[in-house]
Amino acid sequence: MPPGAPDLGESGEHHLLRAAKAQGTCRVMCFHPRSDLTLPLMALPEIRRVVDEWANQITELGRSYLWVQVFENRGKVMGCSNPHPHCQIWASSFMPNEPGRSDANQLKYYEEHGAPLLLDYVQLELKKKERIVVETEHWLAVVPFWAVWPFETLLMPRRHVQRFPDLTDSERDDLCVAMKQLLTKYDNLYECSFPYSMGWQGAPTGPQRDKDCPHWQLHALYFPPLLRSATVKKFMVGYEMLCQSQRDLTAEQAAAKLRELPDLHYKLSSN
């Protein structure tokens, strides 16, 4: 429900049919006045303005809402109906299902090991260097060991950061470098504007915005659907929908393919 909507109460019809009120708001944020400039084609100062506005939006909406989800659906294959490069920001009074599971799993790991799960994972990947795609001073992008989509990536800061607005100036500058490199590699893979859904996840906000959540590590998830070419999409069907997802190539193979691609965008290299 939008703010100010009437409270419809909670459903008590049956213990299998339960519903409760939920409030929230949705926003659309454009990245650039030009409709042909995606993030990897933008200059670093332009990307920095996007990063700062993400922080501003999370800070503003986080005063009122428990969860603020910044996400981008890129490309028609991901259901994007507006070609102008943009993202969406949905804020809710409740913790959605996926972040809720992530919160529980990270908390369980922290209680068992005394360290944030994803921070330990950063150190593991830095040591093994098998699934790294982009490595900068403050950021690491990897094809995670548990990846489901062929070229799925996980982008994380090297230090312990709980929420996006907590990033320092130098970390925000370096994030622009890391994102530009990662998204350029995506586009260079099949020389197309690579479709994906991505989103940022960090510690809850709203009533918990000032709470220390040491089990949380800020991270971004990229889920691109393309498999073997710009036109061949991976579909989650049959066994994957009914039983368990299956990988078409290993995380190490996917990381190697992306890592070996040039950092210069194919549209710029042809000029």
Rank of each mutant, 00 (worst) to 15 (best):
V122L: 03
Q123G: 02
L124F: 12
L124Y: 13
K128E: 15
K129C: 02
E130M: 04
E130L: 03
E137P: 00
L140N: 14
A141T: 13
V142D: 14
V143S: 10
P144M: 05
W146N: 12
W146L: 11
W149H: 15
E152F: 12
E152K: 11
T153K: 09
T153Y: 12
L154Y: 12
L154R: 14
M156E: 08
R158E: 10
R158K: 15
R158Q: 13
H160I: 02
H160P: 01
Q162N: 03
Q162M: 15
R163Y: 09
R163D: 04
F164Q: 05
D169K: 11
E171A: 05
R172W: 09
L175A: 04
C176V: 01
A178Q: 04
A178R: 09
A178S: 05
K180H: 10
K180A: 02
Q181C: 08
L182H: 00
L182D: 06
K185W: 05
K185R: 14
Y186M: 01
Y190W: 15
Y190I: 08
Y190V: 07
Y190G: 05
S193C: 14
F194I: 08
F194E: 09
P195A: 08
Y196S: 03
S197K: 02
S197P: 00
M198T: 13
M198K: 01
M198Q: 02
Q201C: 04
A203G: 09
P204T: 07
R209W: 03
D210M: 12
K211I: 02
K211G: 00
C213N: 10
P214R: 05
H215A: 11
Q217A: 00
H219I: 01
A220K: 00
L221V: 14
P224M: 06
P224W: 07
L227E: 15
S229Y: 11
S229H: 05
A230K: 10
K233T: 12
F235M: 15
F235G: 01
M236N: 08
M236C: 09
M236Y: 05
M236A: 04
V237Y: 08
C243K: 10
Q244I: 07
S245R: 10
Q246E: 11
R247Y: 01
R247M: 07
D248C: 03
E252T: 04
Q253M: 08
Q253T: 09
Q253N: 03
A254R: 06
A254E: 12
A255R: 12
A255G: 06
A256Y: 09
L258C: 05
L261G: 02
L261R: 11
D263Q: 05
L264E: 13
Y266S: 00
Y266E: 01
K267M: 14
